[in-house]
Design a protein around this nucleic acid. Structure first.
Lengths: 114, 114
DNA sequence: AGCCCTGCGTTCACATTTTGAACGCAGGGA
DNA sequence: TCCCTGCGTTCAAAATGTGAACGCAGGGCT
């Protein structure tokens, strides 16, 4: 996972539901708790996310990871960059798929029995 | 880089030009010499690639990494798997791009000034 | 012959990255 | 009161990746 991708995914996740545990976040991102914590820490230290407490609906204590205004801006920037990257990947993957198909076909024609 | 992807790329590389140094291979794959060596070793030990010596056109000593028959079969299998994976990625990336675009648009409409 | 230069495969100690078990803490229920 | 749960946090260990350094062998030079 890229730096931008990780940040995008975290920011997106938090924006959609600020009440989320680091473990849930880790799960959603498919990374370890340690790493999720590390990512979150980075965003907090850079002022993009503010952590606070709140009471969950049923009186359970929980944390809140809320995007700050600069966090919202950052998320936009990160999304823009990530989108551009994905678009580039999309184009290149299409080319590769065509090339792979041609290659398979050629192989089938030459050594066609298995 | 995936396991399959790495193997596909190595086998493809060797099939196209069996005369190639591990450093060139490393360069082509964008990995370190150590890793290229490790990958190559794996393929050789599993009998997919046979290493031999040969004389380069201008009397320089070189190595030859030639795909064995089973190596050719393996390459076909690996290519098939890799292609399937890429096709899946292609579909999912398209969906993600659409979602990203929608997200950017929505953000532009709501907090439209920067 | 001797010598050096180059490029080869190979090694391996190191750096980087990732993991997840373990800890302390705090609220809620029995 | 005492546990149980789930939280953030830590950090030693595992996994992965790196590239400088080594020995070796052929080719070109004097």
């Amino acid at each position: 996972m890229t730096h931008d991708e990780a940040h995008y995914r975290v920011l997106r996740m938090l924006q959609d539901n600020p009440d989320i545990s680091q473990r849930e976040l880790a799960d959603a991102l498919g990374v370890s708790v340690g790493k999720a914590h590390y990512l979150l820490r980075g965003l907090i230290e850079r002022g993009f996310v503010k952590a606070g407490n709140f009471r969950r609906s049923n009186h359970k204590l929980g944390y809140l990871y809320k995007l700050t205004p600069s966090g919202i801006r950052e998320k936009l920037n990160v999304t823009r960059r990530y989108l551009a990257r994905r678009e580039a990947e999309y184009k290149s993957i299409r080319a590769e798929i065509e090339s792979l198909r041609a290659e398979m076909e050629a192989a089938a024609r030459s050594g066609g029995d298995s």
